[in-house]
Design a protein around this nucleic acid. Structure first.
Length: 485
RNA sequence: GCGAGUGUAGCUCAAUGGUAGAGCAUCACCUUGCCAAGGUGAAUGUCGAGGGUUCGAGUCCCUUCACUCGCUCCA
C-alpha cells in the first residue's frame, strides 16, 4: 500500500524544487505548472529514456519535432475543432451541467417539438443543436428563455430545470497568426502531437527512405482548455505528450497493435521498474467510430486509477481525413505487395507530465530510520525510490567536514562528466543524507578524514542505507554498475 | 459555471477586536563529526488584494482574485 497522497507529493515537489504552480507570484494560474531544477532534470531524463527506447534503439521508428501551431485546417480535418467545442448549460436547481446535445437526446418528443417551434425548425436533435449553436454564437438572451419556457427536463431529476444561459466551451486553445486579429487569422495550439505526424508522413517516409511498416515519434507540448484541471499535474491545460504513430498494412495491424502494447508494458516494467500491481490495462468497451481496438495503461494514483497511456488502432481514419481535406492522395505504394493503400495506424500516446507524477507517486516512501535526536530512537524518513535513470541527482558527493570540501569537489567534478552529480557541504552529514533521500538520489559518496590517507570513500545506498568502502580508482566503474543494475 | 472550503514566514500551522508568533526548514560560526546530532547566532511577513464598520481589524461586514474539493467534461 502506497504511503503517497497527492498532498504529500505536491508539498515535496514544491519544497524540493520539482514542480510548483505556474505564476505563483500572481496567485497562480489554474492548470499550469512549472518544473524546478530537480523536476526538469528528471523530466528531461524521462523524456530521453522514452526517446531512446522508442526511437534511438530502433531502425523502424523515426523522430520529428513539429511546430505547436499548424495550419488551422489540420484541426478541422482531425475533428478537433468540432469535437472540442460543446455548448454547455447549467441547471441551477440540481447544480448539474449538461452538454446541450446530451440534453436534447434525453428530451421527450413534446419538448423537442416545443423547441422546434421556438426555433422555427424541425424536431430533430441535430437540427436543434445547430439552432442552439447559431443562437449562442449571436449571444442572444433568447436561448435561456426558450429552454425554460419549453420546460426542458433535467435528466438527473426528471423535472424541468432552471436553466442558465448556454455557453460555448472551446477545448482547443486559440491564437492569431499575424498582427491582425480576425477570423481569417485564427489558429489553434495543437491539442495533441500526433496530427503533425500524420501530415508529415509522406515527407518523412521519402526523406528517410522508410518503407511501411515504420513509425514516427514526437514529443512535445499540447494544449487543451480543460474545464476543470484537477489532481495536481494529472490534468493540466498545457502538458507534454510522447507519441508514436506506426504505419502499417491493415492485414498486419492487429499484430502490430499487440506488439506495441507489449513493448510499452515492457517499458514500464524494465525501464521504470514499476511494480506489477501499480499498473493495469483497460480495454476500451466503447470505441471511437474510426478505431478497431483501443486500450489504456492505467496507474493507481493516490486519487484512484488514471490513464497514463493509450494504445490505439486508429485504422486509416487520420490519413483519410487529411487526404480528404487537403485533396492530396495520401496513399502509399507498397512495392513488396505491389499495392497502393492508405496505411493503417497504431498509436502509442503517453502523457509525460502524468508519467512524471506516476513515477513520483510510485517512488514515494516513508520508513523508519534511527536518529540521534534527543528523546527519540527512530524517525520517519521520507525517501523517493526513483529509478536511477530518471533520478535528478544520481550521485551526491558529501565531505564529512567542510574542511574536506576541496578534495570532495574534485571527485564531484570528475563524476559530473558521466553522471548527474551534486556536491553538498552544508550542515550535518545525516541531514544531507536525508535531503538526498527526499529527492531520490540513489548513491551518496562520503569523503572523510581517512580518505586523505587511504584514497577510499564511503558509498551509501539510498534504499538499504548500507555503506561500502570503495577505492577512488574504482569509483566511476562502481557507480556505473550500481546505477545500471 | 454552480455549491462548499481555504488564503498569516520557504513549509506546517497558532494568535477573545488591543504590540504578528511557534515548530520545522534555510544561512553563518563552533564541534575529528557517518544517518533530519549538539551548541551559539542570523535572516524571513503589504496577515491574498481592495473597500467598509470601529478609538483600534489578521480577526467583523462587503467586493474581488487565486487555489482546493464536489458536480459537469475528459476524444
Amino acid at each position: 500500500m502506497s504511503k503517497a497522497t497527492i498532498e504529500k507529493i505536491s508539498n515535496l515537489c514544491k519544497r524540493r524544487g520539482f514542480i510548483f504552480q505556474s505564476s505563483e507570484l500572481y496567485n497562480g494560474i489554474n492548470g499550469f505548472w512549472d518544473y524546478g531544477p530537480n523536476g526538469v532534470a528528471m523530466r528531461r531524463a524521462l523524456e530521453q529514456a522514452w526517446w531512446n527506447y522508442m526511437v534511438e534503439a530502433r531502425d523502424n521508428v523515426e523522430g520529428q519535432d513539429s511546430t505547436i501551431i499548424c495550419h488551422p485546417q489540420v484541426w478541422k480535418a482531425s475533428g478537433h475543432v468540432d469535437q472540442f467545442a460543446d455548448i454547455m448549460v447549467d441547471n441551477k436547481i440540481s447544480k448539474k451541467r449538461f452538454r446541450i446535445d446530451n440534453l436534447l437526446e434525453q428530451q421527450s418528443p413534446e419538448v423537442l417539438q416545443a423547441l422546434a417551434d421556438s426555433f422555427e425548425t424541425e424536431a430533430d436533435v441535430a437540427k436543434l443543436e445547430a439552432s442552439f449553436e447559431t443562437q449562442v454564437e449571436q449571444k442572444t438572451e433568447l436561448v435561456k428563455v426558450i429552454l425554460n419556457d419549453c420546460k426542458v427536463i433535467d435528466p438527473s431529476t426528471k423535472k424541468p430545470g432552471d436553466w442558465t444561459e448556454p455557453k460555448q466551451f472551446n477545448l482547443m486553445m486559440q491564437t492569431y497568426v499575424g498582427p491582425v486579429f480576425d477570423e481569417d487569422h485564427k489558429a489553434y495550439l495543437r491539442a495533441e502531437t500526433c496530427q503533425p505526424i500524420f501530415i508529415n508522413f509522406h515527407t518523412i517516409a521519402t526523406s528517410m527512405r522508410q518503407k511501411v511498416p515504420f513509425g514516427i515519434a514526437q514529443t512535445g507540448k499540447a494544449f487543451r482548455n480543460e474545464i476543470n484541471p484537477r489532481n495536481f499535474t494529472f490534468r493540466s491545460r498545457e502538458f507534454s505528450q510522447m507519441e508514436m504513430e506506426f504505419f502499417c498494412h491493415e492485414e498486419e495491424a492487429m499484430d502490430w497493435y499487440n506488439y506495441w502494447r507489449d513493448e510499452r508494458l515492457k517499458f514500464y516494467k524494465d525501464v521504470l521498474n514499476f511494480r506489477p500491481e501499480a499498473t493495469r490495462t483497460h480495454d476500451h468497451e466503447k470505441l471511437a467510430h474510426y478505431a478497431k481496438a483501443a486500450m489504456d495503461i492505467e496507474f493507481e494514483f493516490p486519487f484512484g486509477w488514471g490513464e497514463l497511456e493509450g494504445i490505439h488502432h486508429r485504422g486509416t481514419w487520420d490519413l483519410s481525413q487529411h487526404a480528404e481535406h487537403s485533396k492530396q492522395k495520401l496513399e502509399y505504394f507498397d512495392q513488396a505487395r505491389n499495392e497502393r493503400y492508405i496505411p493503417t495506424v497504431i498509436e502509442t500516446s503517453v502523457g509525460l507530465d502524468r508519467l512524471m507524477l506516476a513515477i513520483l507517486c510510485h517512488a514515494y516512501d516513508e520508513d523508519e530510520a534511527e536518529t540521534q535526536k534527543e528523546g527519540k530512537e527512530t524517525d520517519v524518513r521520507v525517501v523517493l525510490r526513483l529509478p536511477a535513470v530518471v533520478a535528478p541527482v544520481q550521485v551526491a558527493v558529501l565531505p564529512l567536514s567542510k574542511k574536506l570540501s576541496e578534495s570532495s569537489e574534485k571527485i564531484h567534478k570528475d563524476l559530473q562528466k558521466n553522471f548527474r552529480s551534486a556536491h553538498d557541504v552544508t550542515q550535518a552529514i545525516g541531514r544531507r543524507y536525508r535531503r538526498q533521500d527526499e529527492i531520490g538520489t540513489p548513491l551518496c559518496v562520503t569523503y572523510d578524514f581517512d580518505s586523505e590517507e587511504d584514497n577510499c570513500v564511503t558509498v551509501r545506498d539510498r534504499d538499504t542505507m548500507t555503506q561500502e568502502r570503495i577505492s577512488l580508482d574504482e569509483l566511476q566503474g562502481y557507480i556505473f554498475n550500481k546505477l545500471n543494475a
